[in-house]
């Protein structure tokens, strides 16, 4: 294989540095196709090597340099203004992009491109919340939102995503547990809201069951049963009487009309203890009771 002209030049320079005569060294490569270029480059390299030394007036005294280096202030690195502007512009652009994506993802359902943005934003919002009541209410809203998303998916003829029902149960449980551990006034209100939300979810889930594809029905029925049982447990434990919009003849399950009754709710210490025990032992609140749910065989008419 023919040696590259770059390597030959380097080799020639090394040979010359060892004391070789340039013309004699070059003569070895006379047959090389790039001989003329090599010759010019080598001669120029030698011209460069023989460039004059810079005029030196006097080598400054080392002690002067050393003293000056000790006394001179160390320069701080200053971030150039242009760089700061660029970084700031980048942050603003990212912020605007995120804001637009979050806004656009508001109505997304599972399977949509922006759905992960919606869930991610929920997580960010939740982690930014500090108050227990705020967190409980937010989880309750998320729980209802999961059901709405499932409803929307089924309405569009899609497959019901059962993982949404699990999330719905998880979020409801979180809200209820938080409610039970809060001071009296907040607790009473939030327990009532939880019970109300669970009742609505039971009916909403049944609507989804009715509209779902036949292949999905068996899986959804488990959650419908679990929901019914959860609703009954809430009613029997706290004695809250709630009428949901559909029971009052409202046309749409998910419209925000308040048809509830019995807002005066007082939760006793005994009821709290009973519910806490139920959450831990029965799995009704978490929706994780497949065996029991099947035995339950309850479908609202």
């Amino acid at each position: 294989m023919k040696e590259s002209v770059e390597n030959i030049l380097d080799k020639c320079l090394e040979d010359i540095a060892r004391g070789g005569a340039p013309d004699k060294i070059l003569a070895e490569y006379r047959e090389h196709p790039e001989y003329e270029i090599l010759k010019d480059a080598l001669h120029l390299a030698l011209d460069l090597k023989n460039l004059q030394e810079p005029p030196i007036s006097k080598i400054p005294d080392f002690s002067l340099i050393a003293d000056y280096s000790k006394n001179s202030p160390v320069k701080r690195k200053i971030i150039p203004f242009r760089l700061i502007t660029r970084i700031a512009a980048m942050f603003v652009a990212v912020f605007i992009l995120l804001a637009v994506a979050v806004q656009a993802s508001d109505d997304s359902i599972p399977g949509d491109l922006l759905y992960p943005v919606k869930r991610g934003y929920e997580k960010v919002r939740f982690s930014c919340m500090t108050g227990d009541r705020q967190r409980a209410e937010f989880k309750m809203a998320c729980s209802n939102l999961r059901l709405s998303e499932a409803h929307e998916s089924v309405k569009k003829g899609g497959k019901a995503d059962v993982s949404l029902f699990s999330s719905m149960f998880d979020d409801s449980r979180y809200a209820l547990e938080k409610a039970l551990s809060m001071p009296e006034k907040d607790r009473d209100e939030l327990v009532f809201l939880s019970a109300y939300s669970m009742k609505k979810q039971k009916e909403g889930l049944y609507q989804i069951y009715q509209k779902a594809l036949d292949s999905d029905k068996s899986e959804i029925s488990h959650y419908v049963c679990a929901c019914s049982k959860r609703d009954e447990l809430m009613a029997s434990t706290f004695g809250i009487k709630i009428s949901t919009p559909s029971e009052k003849g409202c046309p749409a399950m998910f419209e925000c009309c308040d048809c509830s009754e019995g807002r005066e709710c007082k939760v006793s210490a005994g009821e709290i203890a009973k519910m806490k025990k139920s959450i831990q032992s029965s799995g009704v609140i978490t929706g994780s009771l497949p065996g029991e749910a099947k035995k339950f065989q309850y479908y609202p008419q």
Binding site: V5, E6, N7, L9, D10, A41, L44, A45
Partner: peptide, 8 residues
């Protein structure tokens, strides 16, 4: 080596 040649 490549760069020195190109520079020349």
């Amino acid at each position: 080596r490549i760069m020195q040649f190109r520079s020349l």
